[in-house]
Simulated scan of single mutants.
Amino acid sequence: MKIKKFIAPTMPEAMKKVRQELGPDAVILNSKNVKTGGFLGMFKKMNIEVIAALDPAASRGKVKEPYINRKNRLPENYPPASDSDEVLKELKHLKTLMKEQKQQPLFHDSCQKLYEHLLNQELDKELAHEFTTLVEGNQLSLNSMTSSKRDMVNMLSEKLGKTVQFPELYSKQFVHLVGPTGVGKTTTIAKIAADAMLNRDLNVALITIDTYRIAAIDQLRTYAKILDIPFEVAYNFEEYIAAREKFAKYDLILVDTAGRNFKEIFHVQELKETMDFNQNTATHLVLSLTSKERDMKEIIRNFKEIPVYQLIFTKTDEASVFGPAINIARQHEMGIAYLTNGQDVPDDIVKCTSNKLASLLMEDFE
């Protein structure tokens, strides 16, 4: 394909140049206004820049020959790389627009709006389609938004309850919290400890093996003093086992771990060597809902050798989409134990339920 740029004072003159040089079979790929000429940056004139292309094989009515690598030589009059890249971007954009125009709505009116809302929430496409079909089949009146939205939340809650696990809390004596840096593990441990003490009347103890950050140790020690519960720091596996034995008579022992880049598999192996995963232990993987879904999935894949069955999602107050939490739980068959939505201890934490997830997913639907 021959591609060339033309500049002229007006579009008719530009088209005339195109026809003269490329012939009547030329195709206009892009056009825009540009300023040219002038003196010392002043008195520039407005012109029309047109990028046109001609397929010589098509203009002769012949089938285009297969591509043959001719030692990467560019044809004469081939536009500079910057212009060529601009043309390719424009072609990709036009191709996307054409695909969008060809796609027909899958549902009628407001149901299509619901389907698009679920996709914008990054909910799995198959689940979004199933739920919208369910709404359409039940003939909910989406015109009365207040009542219909409540009905949709209830329907979505029921559907999520069949596909997402919501485990019983405190079913194990020892609970490890693991996860990447910056997701809020230490604050989450303090919230769980406070909830267990104040609302469930459990005897709670804290252990930390996060010896990489002095601030994390001090933070958890401060929480322990405020809650008036025992606290131990374990610098190695032996001290960790000793702390477990020391707190053996407590109802709930929460273990804080170091935040690492668990996209690197060797950090997971390191963690595996510092803890005991027996039958009386539950491991909660803490993830932030502000993270990308593909990053969270990669972390979970790296944890395949550690028995993680519960998830905790933090920063729901900062997140704009909630579909990834549902997608991950369903795909990896993991339960969601908690959602946190702020820094306040012990207030900003809730037990995750299907109704809570459905409400978050539908919160901005109008």
Rank of each mutant, 00 (worst) to 15 (best):
V34C: 05
K315L: 14
K44H: 06
E305I: 15
E13L: 15
M296K: 02
A8K: 09
R244Y: 04
N278K: 11
I214K: 03
A224T: 08
P66I: 08
V268H: 00
A193L: 05
H332W: 11
I192W: 04
V268T: 04
F43R: 13
P80Q: 07
E122N: 07
L287V: 14
V183S: 03
K149Q: 05
I300F: 02
G323T: 00
L118G: 01
Q219M: 10
F43I: 13
C352F: 04
V233R: 00
T353V: 10
I48P: 01
H267R: 02
D276Q: 15
E136S: 14
D295E: 14
A193Y: 01
Y67V: 10
R221E: 13
I229K: 02
K356H: 11
D228Y: 04
G323F: 04
K113N: 10
Y235T: 08
L198T: 08
D364K: 04
K297I: 04
H117Q: 05
A196I: 07
T181C: 09
K71C: 07
G323I: 01
K297A: 08
I214P: 00
Y115A: 09
K89V: 06
L287N: 01
A325H: 02
V50T: 07
P66Q: 06
E232K: 12
S147N: 10
R213A: 10
R150F: 06
K17A: 14
M11Q: 08
L227W: 02
D25C: 12
A128I: 13
S320R: 10
D364W: 02
E90T: 09
K297V: 00
K351S: 11
I265G: 00
Q343F: 06
I299K: 03
A337F: 05
V308C: 05
K102P: 02
L22S: 03
M11G: 10
R73W: 05
H284C: 10
L118C: 02
D25P: 06
A14P: 07
Q269H: 08
D55T: 15
E116I: 08
P75S: 02
G259H: 01
P75T: 05
D295Q: 06
G38L: 14
S110A: 12
I68V: 14
E13N: 12
C352M: 11
E238Y: 09
Y115K: 04
Y240F: 15
Q165F: 11
Y212T: 07
V164K: 01
V233M: 01
V178L: 11
A53P: 07
A26L: 07
N355E: 12
